[in-house]
Nucleic acid binder design. Structure first.
Lengths: 207, 207
DNA sequence: CCGCACATGGTGGTCAGACCAGTTTATGTT
DNA sequence: AACATAAACTGGTCTGACCACCATGTGCGG
C-alpha cells in the first residue's frame, strides 16, 4: 500500500489497486477476486478497509459478492453509472471524440426540444437576456437545456460539459449576435434553420 | 433496523434508511448527517456497517466526509453518475417521460450518426441480418448504436434501455419489414426519411 | 473585559479479533 | 463408488481499541 500519496483514504487506495489489478491481470466478468482476508494481507491493510472498498464497488454494481463463495467481477458492460465509469474507461484519445460528439448532439437535441416545448414568452425572455447579459457558452446552453425541460439531458450535459472543458478543445469565441440568431431560429420552429445556426456556432459542416 | 426483509445486507438497509431520512427530514446539500457512532446506535447496527454504507455513498459522490467534522450531504444536483442517482431520484412520473424522451432521441441520434459513419457494406450486413435473424427491439438498436461507434452513447443507451423496459410503457411490436426499411433509409443518407421511418416505428408524430 | 493557549470531547480513519452463517472441499465410512 | 460428515474457507457483523483531526470551552494572563 502507501503508493504515491498517503493521507488519502485507504479504501480509495484499495479501489485504485483493484482497478489496476483488473487491468493488468486481465480480470474478466465473472472472475473471482481474492478473498477479503487475502486482500487485506496482500495490501497490508485491515480487513474492514478492504470491505469498505468492496462495498462501495458493490453498490456501484462493479462487483458482486456471494457469502461463502467469494467476490466476483460483475458484467458491467455499459451498465451502471456514467461518471465513475468514465474514470475507468475515459482515458484514450478516442473517448475524447465521443465526448465532443455526444455533447454537441445533446445540445442540438435540446435546442429542438426547447423550440417545441417552450412558450414564446420564455424564448423571448432568453433572447432579451442573450442580447444584454454577460455569459459564456456554458451559461447560454444551460438555459437552452433548461428549456428542453428534461432532467436526464440536463445531467448528462452537465457531466459532458465538465469533461469537454477539461479536454481543452480549441474553440472560437461565439459572438452575441450568433447566440441571438440561434434563439430566433428556435422561435421559427424551423428545424433546419436551428441546425444550420448551431453548426455555424460550433464550426461544424454537418450534424 | 430489520425493516421488512432481513437477510439483506445491513449496509444496504442503511443506505435505504439514509435515503428515507434525506427525503422525510428534508436534508439538503451541505447539511450534516448524524455521526457514524450515533447512526449505529440509532439503527442498532455496528459502526463498521454504517461505515460501509457511508463509504459506498461517498464513492458515489452523494455524501462527503471530513475528518474531525462529520459527514455531509453533497451538492449532487445534476452532477455525478446517472445510474444509481436515478434510483434515488427517478421515482416520480415526470422522470419516466424523461427516460422515454431521452432514449428515443439518443436512438435517433445514433441512427443518423450510423448512417454517416458506417460503410455501406456494414449497413448491408445488418440489413441481411434484419431480414433473416430473430431479434427484439433492443437487439436491433444495439447493432444500430454499434454503428454509431460512440461509447458514451452506447453506455447511456444501455442504461436508458434497462430503465425504459422496467417502466412498462405500452409498446407495439414492430414488424421485421419496418426495421429493414429503417436500414434502407440509412443507406440513402436521407435524414428526413430516417426520421420519418423511426417515428413510424415508435409511433411518434414528430421527434 | 478581552484575547490567546491549552485541554477536552466529538468525529472520521484504521485496525485487530471475535463470532455467525453460508459454501466448498476434503475426509472417512459404508 | 456413493454418501455422510467434518474441516476449511468466504462473506457478514459486531465490538473495542487507538490515532489524527477539528471545534468548542475553559482558564490564564494581559
Amino acid at each position: 500500500m502507501n503508493s504515491s500519496q498517503s493521507s488519502s483514504k485507504v479504501y480509495l487506495e484499495i479501489v485504485k489497486q483493484l482497478r489496476a489489478m483488473i487491468q493488468t491481470e486481465g480480470y474478466q466478468a465473472g472472475d473471482k477476486l481474492p478473498s477479503e482476508r487475502e486482500m487485506s494481507e496482500r495490501l497490508n491493510v485491515g480487513r474492514s478497509s478492504v470491505r469498505e472498498a468492496f462495498r462501495a464497488l458493490e453498490l456501484l454494481g462493479l462487483i458482486e459478492t456471494r457469502r461463502g463463495e467469494g467476490t466476483f467481477i460483475r458484467d458491467f458492460r455499459g451498465h451502471q453509472l456514467v461518471q465513475l465509469l468514465s474514470t475507468f474507461i475515459l482515458q484514450d484519445e478516442r473517448a475524447k471524440g465521443d465526448v465532443k460528439e455526444t455533447k454537441f448532439l445533446i445540445e442540438w437535441d435540446c435546442l429542438w426540444l426547447g423550440a417545441r416545448k417552450a412558450a414564446d414568452s420564455e424564448l423571448n425572455k432568453i433572447k432579451e437576456w442573450a442580447l444584454t447579459g454577460n455569459y459564456d457558452d456554458d451559461e447560454f446552453f444551460y438555459r437552452i437545456i433548461l428549456l428542453a425541460d428534461n432532467h436526464l439531458f440536463m445531467r448528462m450535459w452537465t457531466i459532458l460539459k465538465d469533461y469537454y472543458n477539461s479536454l481543452n478543445f480549441p474553440q472560437d469565441k461565439v459572438s452575441k449576435e450568433d447566440y441571438v440568431l440561434l434563439i430566433d431560429t428556435m422561435v421559427q420552429h424551423d428545424e433546419q434553420q436551428i441546425k444550420d445556426q448551431y453548426c455555424k456556432i460550433r464550426n461544424l459542416s454537418s450534424i
